[in-house]
Design a protein around this nucleic acid. Structure first.
Lengths: 153, 153
DNA sequence: CATATACCCATTGACGCCCATATAATCCCA
DNA sequence: TGGGATTATATGGGCGTCAATGGGTATATG
């Protein structure tokens, strides 16, 4: 499976290491399984992450915004300049930079949430609350959710 | 037959394993017969499941939403982080995650109900009650049922 | 030289793989 | 067509492997 799905709760050890969930490691392209990129989410107090290959896709998305709008600069700056790359060690662990941990309020434990082509890292309680909130918002519009889930090709 | 049909009642063993009904295994694409996805039903207290191919369809649809909108995050979170993938072993058994068992009230036994392109897993008694209820609802509207059944493609 | 980080090894518990059995379904041949 | 033989399915259990986590030590980098 080459998608990031499901959620996992892992611990940060004394050295600051945390395991990238095994299924997430497998979702990375076989070539670069030892490097991931991390950046602050623009929409929530969480960290977003993905394989380095995904950068091109992000660039494309931003490029599709109106070049002369304020949004363009804002997104472009907020995302690209904030990106950090991290190495995943042989045991599948990596270090979350201090600044990102602060941004997300993460201390000794973190929650990984699959988002398809990328994933989010949350302070566990905040992450769970976020899931509940967005599910609640969506259930108000059952029709659209059902469309996404049950539509046939 | 590449559709999930009929109903089956199987047991959960001490290790938490349960057999995916043989006919359901055959309904999965020959390629990925050892992996299925499970998620909480939005309409009932049951678990829904299907092959991974369907998940990729869903991913594609979500990917087409506006990346920078709030809806995108809601869909992405509610679907990808709630979905779990499970491996089907050589004997055709798999594990139902604890959280999903709780959601559906499943303990030692589970009922599988074919739903065409996907299937549902119920706590047996609740599942049977649900079948009765929905049949009763349908019979109240015989006209629309007849329409569906006799309509020609 | 001091701190950070990568590599190596160890532990524990969960899960996958293998083998086994019983019951049910199917086949096959006289 | 009957009845024994073969196959498949659901289920049980042993055991090795892997994932998550902990810690020691080498190496790099300023």
């Amino acid at each position: 499976m080459d998608l990031f799905v499901s959620k996992y709760f892992n611990k940060i050890d004394k050295k600051g290491r945390i395991s990238l969930p095994s299924s997430f490691r497998n979702a990375l392209p076989k070539a670069n399984r030892n490097e991931i990129i991390l950046y602050k989410s623009i929409k929530s107090s969480s960290i977003e992450g993905c394989g380095v290959g995904r950068l091109k896709e992000i660039a494309k998305r931003i490029n599709n915004l109106d070049f002369f709008s304020e949004d363009y600069d804002d997104f472009s700056t907020s995302i690209f300049s904030e990106i950090v790359t991290t190495n995943v060690d042989k045991e599948g662990r990596f270090l979350i930079p201090e600044e990102l941990k602060l941004y997300a309020g993460i201390k000794t434990e973190a929650a990984f949430f699959g988002q398809g082509h990328f994933f989010q890292i949350w302070e566990p309680k905040q992450g769970l609350k976020n899931t509940e909130d967005s599910r609640r918002r969506l259930l108000k519009e059952k029709k659209s959710l059902r469309m996404i889930l049950t539509q046939q090709k």
